[in-house]
Simulated scan of single mutants.
Amino acid sequence: MFFRHSNEMWSEFPELVPGVLFAEGITSAVDVGDRIAGYHATAADRLAQHPESEMAEIQAWRRAFSKMGLKPTQYRCASEALLRRFRQEGSLPRLHPLVDLCNAISIAFAIPVAVLDLSKIAGDLEVRHASGSESYLTFSGEVEHPEAREVIFADAAGQAHARRWTNRQSGLSAVRDDTHSVLIVAEALHGSAVSDVPKLIDAIAAELAAIWSIEARQGVLSSSSPRFDLSSAMNLQLQQKQD
């Protein structure tokens, strides 16, 4: 089982910097209120200087959405949508401790972060253009079919776990109270992404260690090293448990 972006995605977006983490041992019975407060403060400080639309991280995603034929103010990347809501309401909804934490880190860095329940993913997961036959489960329980050429997170069973790349995740692999193993993906396209994404991934890994006592497996991908091997990561964690 692996995660990767298709060759076509790398060809179209050579500036892409994806960071990936695999973590096992997630529970919902933890309090992250104090942990997310610091990230919210960072986001508030950034928003006090510039609205989210003027942040380099968000502008890069707006250009990408335009390149994909999407209206950027109609379909926003996840971090822009969260920042916009945070600016307007001063807070974000509480969903699950891990999701709340990753959302807080996302707005602090202005970089989209996806958190996926691995038990709901069939086989390999690839960010690629849709064929038009894939199925996407909304959070309200409706099944949609992404249009051909739309960028999705697709598994081996033809399930789309995200639509319009970083716009919206699927209800199928959403983190819930019984989630145990997760794949966390952060993607950026702006000029300093090559240094910002590793910092973001390190921040999530540090929080996983502090809150859940989990040693996450992590990596930063590139066109020359585009694949994160989840099988190796899972086997290594199993060996560590046995030792």
Rank of each mutant, 00 (worst) to 15 (best):
residue 122 A to D: 09
residue 60 A to K: 00
residue 138 T to G: 13
residue 60 A to G: 01
residue 76 R to V: 05
residue 108 A to L: 11
residue 168 R to Y: 10
residue 143 V to F: 12
residue 85 R to L: 09
residue 123 G to Q: 01
residue 137 L to P: 04
residue 125 L to T: 00
residue 153 F to N: 09
residue 81 A to R: 14
residue 95 L to R: 14
residue 112 P to L: 03
residue 84 R to F: 05
residue 164 R to G: 05
residue 67 K to L: 06
residue 122 A to F: 07
residue 71 K to M: 14
residue 158 G to S: 00
residue 75 Y to N: 08
residue 65 F to E: 08
residue 119 S to Y: 02
residue 149 R to N: 13
residue 153 F to W: 10
residue 92 L to R: 13
residue 101 L to A: 02
residue 162 A to C: 10
residue 100 D to A: 10
residue 126 E to K: 13
residue 105 I to M: 08
residue 118 L to C: 02
residue 68 M to S: 01
residue 64 A to S: 04
residue 100 D to E: 12
residue 133 S to R: 11
residue 164 R to W: 06
residue 163 R to T: 03
residue 166 T to A: 15
residue 112 P to S: 03
residue 125 L to E: 00
residue 150 E to T: 08
residue 161 H to W: 13
residue 62 R to V: 07
residue 79 S to R: 00
residue 96 H to N: 15
residue 93 P to T: 05
residue 156 A to D: 12
residue 99 V to Y: 15
residue 149 R to P: 06
residue 116 L to F: 13
residue 119 S to N: 04
residue 86 F to T: 12
residue 94 R to E: 14
residue 110 A to K: 15
residue 153 F to A: 13
residue 144 E to A: 09
residue 105 I to A: 08
residue 117 D to P: 01
residue 67 K to M: 06
residue 68 M to H: 01
residue 157 A to T: 06
residue 139 F to K: 10
residue 100 D to P: 11
residue 147 E to V: 10
